[in-house]
């Protein structure tokens, strides 16, 4: 049973990974075909398993309700609302189609509006945290402040008009010191990812296939 539960999944990781590497590093047509076929499977597997997210979200919502139900009727409302909205929007998508104006009504007014406003709220939280933390208290903090302020001024049309040279300065920050630091981070992260990838393909990263 241990073979079925642990060893075969590890073997699958290795063999599928190997096919991908052969498809990428060799010019043998059969490996290109296998790579194209196998990579297309990931799309279908992901799409088929999407209901799993709905089940987990519903369960989390149920647990939340169970924990708070004694505190009043409002928690019952919180519990019911996602199911009602889901039912209405899903039903509308099935009945009229996802391209219909009926479906778009829910999409635009509920989904898009709340999602977009959450990011708008983030403006205020980010602004207040910057008020506390964007202080030139050390050389590192000064570098952070300088990078942030110069690039902010560069992005804002008012300062492009008011401060001659700010566009050039902002672009320089973006394309010179930012690229220096960013490229170093890219290479370092890639080396890390490579090490992790090789360990995974060799069956050394057990955690990845231990779930479930």
């Amino acid at each position: 049973m241990a073979t079925l539960r642990r060893e075969i999944p590890k073997f699958i990781v290795m063999i599928f990974g190997l096919f991908m590497l052969l498809g990428s590093f060799t010019t043998i047509p059969i490996f290109d075909t296998i790579k194209a076929e196998l990579t297309s499977w990931t799309v279908t597997i992901s799409a088929v398993s999407v209901w799993l997210g709905a089940v987990y979200a519903s369960y989390a919502n149920y647990r939340l309700y169970q924990r708070n139900k004694k505190e009043g009727i409002e928690h019952l409302i919180y519990f019911i609302v996602p199911f009602v909205v889901f039912g209405l929007q899903f039903g509308s998508g099935i009945l009229y189609g996802v391209e219909s104006p009926q479906y778009r009504w829910y999409f635009t007014n509920i989904y898009q509006n709340i999602g977009a406003t959450v990011y708008a709220v983030m403006f205020f939280t980010l602004a207040s945290s910057a008020y506390r933390t964007f202080i030139a208290s050390s050389w590192d903090a000064t570098a952070l402040l300088a990078g942030g302020i110069i690039y902010t001024l560069r992005q804002i049309p008012l300062f492009q008009v008011m401060i001659p040279g700010i566009v050039g300065a902002g672009e320089w920050v973006m394309l010179v010191p930012n690229v220096g630091g960013g490229r170093g981070a890219v290479i370092a992260a890639a080396l890390g990812a490579l090490a992790l990838g090789v360990r995974t393909l060799m069956g050394q990263e057990a955690t990845i296939t231990e779930g479930g």
Partner: peptide, 14 residues
């Protein structure tokens, strides 16, 4: 999961 990890990792490493 193993299929996804194997393919994803192989593609990324290459």
């Amino acid at each position: 999961s193993s299929v996804l990890v194997g393919i994803g990792t192989g593609v990324m490493v290459a």
